[in-house]
């Protein structure tokens, strides 16, 4: 069932930062009932948690579900079992990315990747560069639909085209490199 492992997906999830609460879920459905985007999830928030518990590794990690999470944390403050579903969904996202899954029907992972790319380039996010990167790697023509919003922001001095680089950019690179050395050694 799993791509690289079977029958220990729950354990794998619970060992990712944010995924620790997966075993606490009692399927009450409060997360789904509280979610403002549940109607566009491939499997609803409580379903995807049940699927983790049922060891459906491939189905979960290839799903677009968790990518629909808006990080509003409504489920997290309502969950009677402190599962912290928001963090759990982010843990599932990071597992999906780590293992090379590319969910269909959502371009959120591409947006996130361009966001992080912008940080790695300058130390800060350039919203303009992030948007350009996103449209270039998804559908450049879709950018046409954004002209009105982009013009609104540009003409009100809210969308600088150039990006500032922080002075400590090299330090940031060194810190990330060192983390990956430490992680690799473990």
């Amino acid at each position: 069932m799993g791509k690289t492992q079977s029958m220990n997906f729950v354990k794998e999830v619970s060992q990712v930062l944010g995924g620790e609460g997966v075993n606490l879920c009692m399927q009450c459905g409060t997360c789904t009932a509280s979610c403002p985007s549940a109607h566009i999830w491939e499997y609803t928030p409580s379903e995807i948690i049940a699927m983790v518990r049922a060891e459906m590794r491939d189905e979960v990690l290839s799903s677009s579900s968790m990518w629909c999470c808006l990080s509003c944390y409504s489920c997290t403050v309502r969950c009677p079992r402190d599962v912290e579903p928001t963090n759990l969904f982010h843990a599932l996202e990071s597992l999906a990315v780590k293992h090379g899954y590319k969910p269909k029907n959502t371009s959120t992972p591409v947006m996130y990747k361009n966001f992080v790319k912008s940080i790695k380039k300058n130390g800060r996010v350039s919203e303009f560069q992030m948007m350009m990167g996103y449209y270039m790697s998804t559908n450049p023509f879709a950018a046409l639909g954004m002209i009105s919003v982009a013009w609104n922001l540009l003409s009100h001095g809210r969308m600088p085209l150039s990006a500032k680089k922080i002075k400590g950019k090299k330090d940031l690179d060194k810190i990330i490199k060192k983390l990956n050395e430490v992680r690799g050694a473990q």
Partner: peptide
């Protein structure tokens, strides 16, 4: 530097 926001944590916490 950027705090990382939701996107960074979703790719690599």
């Amino acid at each position: 530097n950027c705090c990382g926001s939701t996107p960074y944590g979703s790719l690599d916490e």
